[in-house]
Simulated assay, not measured.
Amino acid sequence: MAITPNEIAIRFTPPKTDADRVAIKAQISEAAGHLAHLIHELVPGSREESQAIKACEIAVHWAHCGIDRRYVARAERRPAPDPVPAEAECLEAMAAADLSARPDRL
C-alpha cells in the first residue's frame, strides 16, 4: 500500500476508545492469551517457545492497531447511498453477460 498523507494521518491519530472497539480488542487478547498458554504448556522451554509467544504478542499488537485505525463503530456508520438507476442497470447487464458467457458457474 502506498503511503499517502491520509494514511499517515490514520496511523498517527490517537486511537478511539468506545465500547465496540474495547470489546473486540478484549476478544482478540483473550484468544491470544489462550494460545500463548497452550504454547507454554506444550512447547519445551526454549528459544522457539519464546519466539512463538512473542509472535502472539506481535499479532495482538497489529490486530489492535487495525481495530484502532480502521474499525468503524455502528454509531459512526453512514448508510450506503441508493445506487444510481443507470448504474444498477449497468450492473445487471454485466451480470447477465457474465452468466451467458459462463453458465456453468452457477
Rank of each mutant, 00 (worst) to 15 (best):
D104F: 09
K54N: 07
P103L: 05
D98P: 05
A93Y: 03
S50N: 06
R74C: 10
A75M: 13
W62M: 11
I53E: 04
S46G: 01
E92P: 01
I67E: 03
D104S: 08
D104K: 06
L91S: 13
V60E: 00
E92W: 03
R70A: 14
A88V: 01
P103V: 03
A88I: 07
E92L: 13
E89G: 14
A59N: 07
D104V: 11
E76Q: 03
R74D: 15
H64L: 02
L42A: 08
A63E: 06
R78K: 11
C56A: 06
A55P: 00
V60R: 01
C56T: 01
Q51E: 15
E92G: 01
S100I: 11
C90E: 08
L99A: 12
L91I: 14
G45I: 05
R77N: 13
A75F: 06
A75P: 00
C56I: 06
A86P: 03
E76L: 00
C90H: 12
A101Q: 14
L91D: 15
I58V: 08
R105E: 02
D68K: 05
G66C: 14
H61A: 13
S50I: 05
A101L: 11
A73D: 15
R74F: 11
A86Y: 10
R105P: 07
P103W: 04
K54G: 03
I58T: 05
R74M: 14
D82R: 08
K54S: 09
R102H: 12
A52F: 13
D82Q: 04
A93H: 11
S50C: 03
L42F: 06
W62S: 11
E92I: 08
A96H: 07
W62G: 05
L42I: 10
A96Q: 15
R69S: 08
P81I: 11
P103T: 04
R102E: 10
K54V: 11
W62H: 15
E49D: 00
L99G: 08
I67C: 06
V84G: 03
R102A: 15
S46F: 04
A55W: 02
W62V: 14
A73F: 13
A63P: 01
D98I: 10
P44E: 05
E48P: 02
S46P: 07
L99P: 01
C90F: 08
L99V: 13
E57V: 00
E57K: 07
D82E: 08
I53G: 03
C90I: 05
Y71K: 06
R78C: 09
R70W: 10
V43K: 00
L42H: 07
A88K: 04
E57C: 06
R77V: 12
E87G: 04
A59V: 09
R69I: 02
I53P: 00
E57Q: 10
